[in-house]
Design a protein around this nucleic acid. Sequence first.
DNA 1: TGTACATCAGTGAACGCGCGTTCACTGATGTAC
DNA 2: TGTACATCAGTGAACGCGCGTTCACTGATGTAC
Lengths: 204, 204
Amino acid sequence: MQENDAYHADVKPGDSTMGHSQTEKARNRERILAEASQQVRRDGLESVGVGALMKSVGLTHGGFYGHFESRSALLAEALQRALQEGEANAQASAASGRLSDMVRSYLSRTHRDARDSGCAVAALVSDVARADDDARSIMTRHVESFIAAVAKTLDGDEERAVVAVSAMVGALALSRVVADPARSNAILKLVRDHLIALDSAGAP
Amino acid sequence: MQENDAYHADVKPGDSTMGHSQTEKARNRERILAEASQQVRRDGLESVGVGALMKSVGLTHGGFYGHFESRSALLAEALQRALQEGEANAQASAASGRLSDMVRSYLSRTHRDARDSGCAVAALVSDVARADDDARSIMTRHVESFIAAVAKTLDGDEERAVVAVSAMVGALALSRVVADPARSNAILKLVRDHLIALDSAGAP
DNA sequence: TGTACATCAGTGAACGCGCGTTCACTGATGTAC
DNA sequence: TGTACATCAGTGAACGCGCGTTCACTGATGTAC
């Protein structure tokens, strides 16, 4: 079939495991999940449809159920994945151990404009707030470790960590609502500067 | 018809304008909108369905289009309405002109637990961030007036106002994600205390 | 190493279902006389 | 004030459509000999 040939043409030549092998299956599962983890952050949990998702990774809808039990099972995994990726980014930008570095990265225009690879907490707070217990406890875990990571940069000061995380999540989410770029930038900058000052204040 | 009689039985006896009058139509439109404004905050914009919405105000789905042009036209109005109600509450709690009063009300457990009558910004930030320009500019307007209201309590200090609003929205949204009540309460309390201190610091 | 066959990843037609929307109809309203 | 009639708010059957899910099938894989 033409369709099929076109698909196989996409696979790197010389790849020993093609379309139907077990390793290829694992790889496809991975691609579905990665795509879903982005889609979920870009357009929300409800936006993910089985048909479109499979199409976007070059497969047909029927194959989906060989990888996941149901759409909602995928959604739970995708949320988890999205949160992990976002957390990994945050950890990476805090490598120096300084809050100011983390804040500069988190409240950057780049992060604001890269919803699909950014922090899933900010991308999905209000959605998850009304989701089932599963989703909420998945996100809760990541919120807690976000707070812990920030607290570590603040000599373990939990109060300031919770405030900083609230302000970071709030500011990023709000900057994505505000359409006017100048105003959106201002929100990021004002909160960024404030939190950076808060950093220095704690470690004089 | 029984159905019809049952419905009319719900109307207050002595009411001169019954089921099909013009004033009743206006009242029904109002009830649809009020219900939608709550539903939108409780379960998200996408959760609102024409059939269920009409049923919840005691009407049938067909009548909907006598009140609104389409589901999405309703959604825009419902969002607006939800934001207005939330703002009205915030203004009311800031009657004293002190930030601490506003913060105490905004970051209260009552507010956290009353999603459907509370601040629509916190209830819908991440949803609106990925919605169309219409929805975003509707919410932007309310975010700006929220910031302005807070700034007024801070001698016009815009930076601190933006930080405070970000922290308030972030903390409220996060407190709704966290399932453990003690932990959720702690988030509210820590940010509340911090912002109240910020208030006193500004007006010594 | 080469061949035969069981396995199983992926395909695409088909299904039931719920949704937004339309429309012919009903019966109360409220106006003209 | 009372009657006849046009208006129109609300009803509920019907529609197309997209969605999640199922399943008989295809053909590549990889194992047994």
